[in-house]
Design a protein around this nucleic acid. Structure first.
Lengths: 355, 355
DNA sequence: CTGAAAGCGCTTACAG
DNA sequence: CTGAAAGCGCTTACAG
C-alpha cells in the first residue's frame, strides 16, 4: 500500500566504515581505478550493491577539477526566422546548468547564407582548445572538412538539427527527418480527402544548402504513395527571403496549380499564412508547416495554418550539451543517435506547448 | 558573429576579496540575512551584479542541511491501466535527483477503487512530519477533508493529474482538462466529416469518483457545438473493468448507435481497440483516446486507434517535486497552476515520443 | 555588525 | 595496495 523510498542516502564514509577501509579506497573502486586488491574490491562492490549506494554527483562535481571546454557552432538567428534562437535558448539553459560543474562553453554563430562566416569560425574553434564541438551542419562539404580537422585534433564532434550520415564522431541529436515527412503526410490524409492537389513548398535563399529538406519530402511522398491515395504531388522552390518576391511566386503558383493543401518544408510557413490572409479572394488550402515560432503560431491561432510540426530545437540544444556532460563527466557510452520527439500543434493545444 | 559565454564562474571568495570582507559576510547578503551594515551590503550587491556572480547551487546544496520531507499520495497501478506507473516513474526521477539535496521523499499508493485505503494513508502522512504532500485527488470529499487537516498542521498541499479548484495550498500541476476535451473535438473534426454520430465513452469502475472526466466531456461538446457541425453526440458509461462485460456493453452500443467515431475519455481506450480488432465484422469507427500506455500504443500502431492524446503523467510527477524543490530550497514563489503540454500521438510519431 | 573555522560528500595528490 | 589530509564553494554555528 505504501511504497517507502527511504532516500536517506548512505555515503561513502559509511561504506568505508562498514568495509573497514578508508574512503580513498572506496573511491578507487567506485571509479574503477586500479591499485585495489581484488578481495577488497569485491567486498566494497558487494556493499555498494547491498546498500544501493549512489554517489552524490553534486559533491563529486564540486571536488573534481575537470578542464572541459565545449564549443557550439550554429547559425545565428535571422530576421526571417527565430528558429535558431530557440535552439540557443536550450544551449543557454545547458550553459547555466553545466558551468556549475566547471565546464567552459562557448557559442559561435555563423551566417547560414554566408559560408565564409562558417569557415572563419571553424578556425576559431580549432584554435580554442576545445574537447568537443556541437555543430549544426548546414554547409555539407565544409562541415565534412571541418570534422576531419577536428578528428586530427581529437576534438569530438556532435551534430544537431540535421545529420550527415556517418560523419560526426559522436552522432546526431535531432528529429528523424524521414518520419517528420511521413507525419506531415499522415496529417495531410486527415485534411484532404479524395482527389486532391498537394503543393510541397521549399522557401529559403540558398536552397542548395538545405539538402536535408529532401529527406522530409521523400518521407512525405513515400507515405502517400504507399497509401495509393488519389493525390497530385507537386514540389516547388521559392528561393527567396523577401515577402514581395514570395507573394509574386505564390500568386503564380495559385494560378497555375490551385492546391488543396500546401506543405511548407521548413519554418517559413508563416509567409504562406500571411499570403492567404492578405488574399481572401483566393480559396485557402489546408496548410502544414514547421516550428513553434511566434509568427507561425499566430496563423495557427487564426486557423490559417492547420498543423505545425515541431521538433523542439531548444531541447536539441540542451540535450546536445547534456550528452557531452554525460559522456565526459559521467563517463557514459556514446549513444550515436538520439531522435527528438516530433510534436503536433493545433489551434487547440499550442497554448500549453513548451518549446 | 561569435557569442562568448565565458562561464568561468567567479566565486564567493573572489567577491569577498574584492569587497575586503569575509565570505561569511558575502553569504549574508547573498541570502538576505540581517546583521549587515547597509554600506557593505550595498557594496557587495553592486559587486555581485557587476560580476554577474551566481552561487554554485551544488555547493550550496552540499553544505545546507535542510530537513525537508515530502510525501506523495497517488493511486497505485492497477492491472487495468499502467497510467499511474508512468506518474510514479517521474516521481522516482525526482527522488533520485532531489535526495542528493538531502530531501526525504516518501511515496504512498492508495487503491483508487477503495476509499478506505486513501483514508488510512492520510493518517500515515499526517503523522509523518512532512513539509508538503503531493496528492492526486480522486476522492473529492475525502481529499478536501485531508487538505483541511494538512492546513492545520502547516503541511503544504499540491495536486496533480486533476484539480479541485481552490482547495490545495500550492495549486495544481496537470493538464487543463477543458482544453484536453476541446483538442479531442478538434481532432474529431478532422476524422469525420458531414453528418455523423459521435459516441463518448466513460469506462471504469467507480465512475462517481471520476468527476473530472465531465470537464473533458464539456470541453469536447462545447467545441463541437460552437462549430455548428452536424453531429449527434451520445455519452455512455461502462462502469466495469472486466473485458467480457465491456465487450457485451460495446456490442449493445454498436447495435443501438453504430457510431462514426468513439471518444474514450480516459486511458482505457485499448479495450475499444481490442473490441474492434476482435470483431472485424463490425464497421470500425474512428477512435480517439488517452495516454501513452503500452496497449494503447499497440492499437495506435495497428491503425485501430487514430489519435492518442497524452498528458505526460511522468512529467507531472517530476514537475510536482521540482515545484516543491524550487519553493522550499530556491525560495521561489508559488505559481499556482502549471498546465502540462497536451501531446498528440499518431501512428507516425509515437515512436519518438518520450513519455 | 563581522570573521575564523568546521563541515557537507566527494576527489586528488602524496606518503608510505 | 592503502590511508591521511587538503580542497571544491558554499552554509552554519560560535566567538568577538
Amino acid at each position: 500500500m505504501s511504497e517507502n523510498s527511504p532516500s536517506k542516502k548512505i555515503g561513502i564514509k559509511e561504506i568505508a566504515k562498514i568495509a573497514g577501509v578508508s574512503i580513498a579506497t572506496v573511491d578507487r573502486v567506485l571509479n574503477n581505478r586500479k591499485d585495489v586488491s581484488e578481495s577488497t574490491r569485491k567486498k566494497i562492490k558487494d556493499l555498494i550493491k547491498e546498500h544501493n549506494y549512489q554517489p552524490n554527483i553534486y559533491a563529486r562535481s564540486l571536488s573534481v577539477k575537470n578542464n572541459l571546454s565545449f564549443a557550439v557552432l550554429i547559425p545565428k538567428t535571422s530576421q526571417q526566422t527565430g528558429y535558431w534562437d530557440l535552439c540557443l535558448q536550450g544551449i543557454k539553459k545547458g550553459i547555466n546548468e553545466y558551468s556549475n560543474f566547471g565546464i567552459n562553453i562557448q557559442v559561435f554563430l555563423y551566417d547560414q547564407e554566408d559560408v565564409n562566416t562558417f569557415e572563419k569560425l571553424n578556425s576559431a574553434v580549432l584554435s580554442g582548445n576545445f574537447n568537443a564541438v556541437i555543430i549544426a551542419p548546414i554547409f555539407i562539404k565544409e562541415t565534412e572538412l571541418f570534422v576531419e580537422e577536428c578528428k586530427k585534433q581529437k576534438i569530438e564532434t556532435l551534430f544537431i538539427n540535421s545529420d550527415i550520415k556517418g560523419c560526426s564522431s559522436m552522432g546526431y541529436i535531432g528529429p528523424d527527418l524521414t518520419s517528420t515527412g511521413r507525419l506531415a503526410a499522415n496529417l495531410t490524409s486527415y485534411l484532404v480527402k479524395g482527389k486532391s492537389t498537394l503543393l510541397i513548398l521549399n522557401i529559403a535563399r540558398g536552397l542548395q544548402n538545405y539538402a536535408y529538406l529532401n529527406t522530409k519530402i521523400d518521407g512525405y511522398s513515400n507515405y502517400l504513395k504507399d497509401k495509393n491515395a488519389d493525390y497530385d504531388i507537386i514540389v516547388k522552390d521559392i528561393p527567396s527571403n523577401n515577402y514581395d518576391e514570395i507573394e509574386m511566386a505564390l500568386l503564380r503558383l495559385e494560378n497555375e496549380i490551385d492546391p488543396d493543401l500546401i506543405f511548407v518544408t521548413n519554418s517559413r510557413v508563416s509567409v504562406v499564412g500571411k499570403f492567404f490572409d492578405e488574399h481572401p479572394e483566393l480559396s485557402k488550402p489546408a496548410i502544414i508547416g514547421f516550428d513553434f515560432l511566434y509568427e507561425n503560431v499566430n496563423y495557427l491561432a487564426k486557423g490559417t495554418i492547420d498543423f505545425l510540426i515541431c521538433q523542439r530545437p531548444d531541447k536539441q540544444g540542451y540535450m546536445a550539451l547534456n550528452y557531452l556532460y554525460r559522456y565526459f563527466l559521467l563517463k557514459e557510452e556514446k549513444e550515436n543517435f538520439k531522435p527528438m520527439p516530433i510534436d503536433i500543434l493545433t489551434i487547440e493545444n499550442y497554448l500549453f506547448y513548451e518549446n
